[in-house]
Simulated assay, not measured.
Amino acid sequence: MATAATYVEFAAREAHGVSPTYERLALAVSRDDEVLALLGTLPPGKRQPNLLFGVVRFLGGPVGDPAAFHDHTVANWPAIEAEMRTRATQTNEAGRCAVLLPVLAALPQPLALLEVGASAGLCLYPDRYTYRYGDHVVGSGGPVLDCAATGVRPPAGLPHVVWRAGLDLNPLDVTDPADVAWLDALIWPEHAHRRARLRDAVAVAAADPPLLVRGDVVDDLPALAARAPEGATLVVFHTAVLFYVPEPRRRAFAEVVRGLPGHWIANEDPAVLRYDALPDPPDETLHTVLALDGTPLAWSRPHGQSFTWFA
């Protein structure tokens, strides 16, 4: 897909109704030949809107006014380019745990959690957060995660987690202010509630840091999975990660994870991890598919704000 079209699609499917600032900015970039030319000097995987906007915010640049964004980006392109080449969009949204919770709570307990593409590991603490599904509340600690659940009754309790580990090409450290600042920069401008949630989730993780291993999703997964304790149900999970993995490696990852003991939870764009005979999504905005062991269960919104169960 051409870079301009990528920004148009981002505005329509991801930012519309969620971030007016990024919707307006993405449409402006899609028509900005000078910025598009600069983006064209980067590898295709490094041209995505979230990465560009996050880097500009991280470096203190403006995103609220497209004209100011254009001037700042052009004037400061060497610094922006350097950051975009070395960084990745590692949005570590703890709110996604609200989508995972019904599946995790239904598996044989206790659990050994292994997240692929873990970033700073904030989604490895589903047992430490509080969930609010309308009037139904689960848990009593950490940040409160609001989620609109349709088609299934939310679980009555939290999962019992006895081991948690993450695998990432570039794991982030919740005790490093620079890494936390990058996570903050990836949160969309209007989302003050997500920024507060990030601070609360970081506090939870910093008090009991997870095991985070730098490694490849295919080559290094079996060795890390083998470190899970006996007597616990191994659960390998990932959310919005395989988009960044080349197609041949996605297939290799699926083969590896299917060969591991335990269970596999995937929450990915249906264009990235394909399933047969999916029902239509609730609307035209971006939805991911929540699946257990290759069986699709529900449509979910990317930041965990809602899910629609269809299994």
Score class of each variant (00 low, 15 high):
M1A: 15
T3Y: 02
T3R: 04
A5C: 09
A11I: 02
E14K: 15
S19N: 07
T21Y: 00
Y22D: 01
Y22R: 11
E23H: 11
A28T: 03
E34W: 05
E34H: 12
A37K: 10
L38W: 11
L42Y: 13
P43G: 04
P44N: 10
R47Y: 08
L51W: 07
F58G: 05
L59M: 13
G60V: 09
P66T: 07
H72K: 01
H72P: 06
T73A: 15
A75V: 10
N76A: 12
A88P: 04
T91F: 11
N92S: 09
A94V: 12
A94K: 00
G95W: 06
C97M: 11
V99G: 03
L100D: 04
P102L: 04
L104D: 00
A106S: 15
L111P: 01
S119I: 02
S119V: 03
A120W: 03
V137E: 07
G139R: 08
S140V: 08
G142Y: 07
V152H: 07
R164H: 00
A165Y: 03
L169K: 05
D173Y: 01
T175S: 15
D176E: 10
D179F: 03
D179E: 00
V180C: 00
I187S: 06
P189A: 13
R195Y: 12
R197P: 02
D200Y: 12
V202M: 11
D220T: 06
A223S: 13
R227S: 14
P229A: 05
T233R: 11
H238S: 08
T239K: 06
A240F: 12
Y244A: 12
Y244T: 07
V245G: 07
R250T: 12
R251L: 08
A254P: 11
E255Y: 15
V256L: 08
G259Y: 15
G262M: 06
H263T: 02
I265P: 07
L273E: 14
L273P: 02
L278S: 10
P279N: 08
H287K: 06
V289S: 04
R301C: 00
R301S: 02
Q305H: 14
Q305W: 13
S306G: 09
F310N: 04
